[in-house]
């Protein structure tokens, strides 16, 4: 599991690469939260286009980050979810809380 973090203005883009399960979630939370605490971060985009496996641990990670970014008065968007992981998103109802876009550019435009 790898996590790529980039900044576009005040938006932090977190691209998750590989498998997102309970094991990798802890590492992602640690790295992502450290970056989110930086004063330049207002909004967050979590990009799943490079995730090849995700279980419900991924939903826990998103809900946790959603609460954090909300408390900073920011917004969270999701990008790049494929059909396989979309089923888990749909089961959780999480997409009622935040928008999902095809790709990062679209998410930034609508932020």
């Amino acid at each position: 599991m790898n996590l790529k973090l980039t900044n576009r203005g005040t938006t932090l883009i977190a691209t998750i690469i590989g498998e997102l399960d309970h094991h990798s979630a802890e590492h992602i939370i640690q790295k992502l939260d450290a970056e989110m605490m930086k004063s330049s971060t207002k909004n967050l985009i979590m990009d799943f286009s490079k995730v090849n496996f995700m279980d419900s641990s991924g939903i826990g990670v998103i809900i946790g980050r959603y609460k954090k970014i909300k408390s900073l008065n920011g917004k969270l968007s999701i990008t790049g979810i494929n059909d396989k992981i979309r089923r888990i998103f749909n089961l959780s109802g999480i997409l009622k809380l935040m928008p999902a876009y095809e790709n990062i550019d679209e998410a930034i435009k609508k932020m």
């Binding site: 826990g60 809900i63 946790g64």
Partner: peptide, 10 residues
């Protein structure tokens, strides 16, 4: 622990 509570549902 930021668990989603979705394990059995999945």
């Amino acid at each position: 622990m930021e668990r989603s509570g979705m394990g059995f549902t999945v």
